[in-house]
Amino acid sequence: MKENLNLKELERKAYRATFQDGFLDITLGLFLIGSAIAGLFQDNKPVRLIITVIIILVPLAIFLLGKKKITVPRIGMVKFGAERKARKKKVAAIILMAVIISSLLALMAMTHSMPIFLAELLKGFGSAVGFGLLAFTMFIFGGYYNDIPRLYLYGLLFGASLFLSECYYNKVGIEVHSSVWFGASGLIMLSIGISLLIRFIRLYPVPSEERTVEGE
């Protein structure tokens, strides 16, 4: 018992404990890999639609089932207090703002009503800047307010995938399918997630007996 009784740090440690199972990383990784596969079927709308549904449902199902069947039986359940809930609301507000800004950028680009200085600034980058910015902001703020630093790396990977898929050819002149960027980023996230999950399962075996206060 070497705990330093810093209450904020204690709460952060408890919160982080619920993310050490790797399921968030696996979900994000699968989502990106799925996007990469969907990108290979750009000309086949029905197949693309089916894959899009799958890439949303499968990672989500893995996340929810994994938490329920693997995480909770190993480390138990916890409900966080008002301060953590307020942090979550802050993240939601920032993400909403990022969505609005990115949507405005996209709308201005589509209706050719972008201010000249902005159009000059974004020239040649297409929608990548808008969506890359959105993804980057979401991950950075999500990582900061949720105390999960590895989300910064994922923000960079996600944003870079969008950016490179739009701009690599324009800037470098070598054509690389956008699926390569998304697939590579997804594989990195998935690998981190799987290694975290393996470590988690080894570290926290399922207790053989019911955990309760004796005599209750």
Partner: peptide, 9 residues
Amino acid sequence: VVESADFLF
């Protein structure tokens, strides 16, 4: 620092 937790947690 939390609202509630179970014994195992």
